[in-house]
Design a protein around this nucleic acid. Sequence first.
RNA 1: CGGCCGUUAGCUCAGCUGGUAGAGCAGUUGGCUUUUAACCAAUUUGUCGAAGGUUCAAAUCCUUCACGGCCGACCA
Length: 512
Amino acid sequence: MTEQVKDENKLIAERRGKLDNIRVNCPANGHPNDFNREHYAADIQAEHGEKTKEELEELQVTYAVAGRVMAKRGPFLVLQDMSGRIQAYAEKVVQKDIKARWGLLDIGDIVGVKGILHKSGKGDLYVNMEEYSLLTKSLRPLPEKFHGLSDQEMKYRQRYVDLIINEKTRDTFQIRSQIVSGIRNFLTERGFMEVETPMLQVIPGGATAKPFETFHNALDIDMFLRIAPELYLKRLVVGGFEKVFEINRNFRNEGLSTRHNPEFTMIEFYQAYADYKDLMNLTEDMLRTLAVNVMGNPVIRNTVKNAEGEVVEEKFYDFGQPFERISMMDAVIKHAPHLDADVIKDPEGRFEELRAIAKKVGVKEPEGKNVWGPGKYLCEIFEEVAEHMLDQPTFITEYPWEVSPLARRNDDNAFITDRFEFFVGGRELANGFSELNDAEDQAARFKQQVAEKDAGDDEAMHFDEDYITALEYGLPPTAGEGIGIDRLVMLFTDSPTIKDVILFPHMRPVAE
RNA sequence: CGGCCGUUAGCUCAGCUGGUAGAGCAGUUGGCUUUUAACCAAUUUGUCGAAGGUUCAAAUCCUUCACGGCCGACCA
């Protein structure tokens, strides 16, 4: 209490003054915890919203609701709870009594109200305040009722205010929750088992990315926040858990953007005795089911807005239709028909020409030595010319082995792996493949990664000896996949930035 | 890490080529009392992001810094 917050102002001071009086005059130091909330606003609206005034008078039903005061309209208070809104009505004597006991209620105060439900002349339901109590005095004024909170920095830094004020924000995170539980249900119904594997790892593996480093005092060792759970999940398949999944956070020490947060949520799942084609089918089924169950429609609508916030373009992503499946080479040829298809089709044989194409389309080669092979160039060309064109749900297959250190080589073509990535709206949402279960091949690929690491690539993988040991015990033929939950939620909720789908996105702390 | 833009009352925003700070909402007081962004009358609110500079005079021009946004880079 001694150190006053520095953003105090007159409005807050006034409310503190009211609270001071409430503490003295009301029980529980002004913070009662004995109001029995029995009903939710939305349930009442759903049950009685259609009834006429007269029908309601007939019923004389009593409801006990609680929530935050969002507006004051004469004798009416608009209360907002977790489910929605309902009005409370205070007749004149009640208004006087409230003023005498708590002072004037402020927008933002949390109250409990019990009484008979009526319908107003204008057709809105309200609970007549017979029993009522101020449950929590709100000391800080809420943003303006009409425009709400639009300052993006404040939306992210003070998400609680954003959630109080903006229904769109509440909807977004409800959809996020439904997507996660939808995936969970979908997989458990199909016999998958949910597991948790280490987030603190001694050898960060399963992806190529810069990890966060930390230190464990008791063990006296460096540790890393995981960049992926992949290698642990496959150890579990070795152990006989043939269908496993994990939904949790990965951490990557990289830049922030509208599509990147240093911690982000992935679902990874692994299925023994399946291949990457099975997973494409599963993915298609799962996303279609999610779209229908969560959004009520297999077609997802996205918008492009201009600086004024007006919708200038609408996009519709159809998860009801069969998803397109096309190889990386064919995708490049399809979306960049001006490039020499014969070269694209023969990256190894016509490597120098491929490099020339890469340069032409704007691929930036790494400094110095020739570390990239034909597979990497092909992939870079694909990302440059085709990726952003993949609008409708599309699987890209036939990823070169060179960019797929954990994927199984294709039986007919050693240049490629049995792998796919999944794109919607030009954004990558998922990555899956038949797992490399040849322990000796995996060991060789780890060695290659270590060589790249030694050559200065700090995102290359470590050699994980225990993982090789696990493979030597025998990983059954298995396929696995990861889906970026945040990006999936962005798509479903038409959110332009990842910060809009993460409750507390990372920001630089405000200076003192 | 680079480029561009932004930061004015609790919130949403005006404030022109420099002349000393405004509106709506909310708040306060009173009225009204079945309202729907409730209404009517009166009224209060500011380190103009921070620091420095130019000037008789800076919210406004210049420099630096902080934070944010968008776009790049890295990646999912």
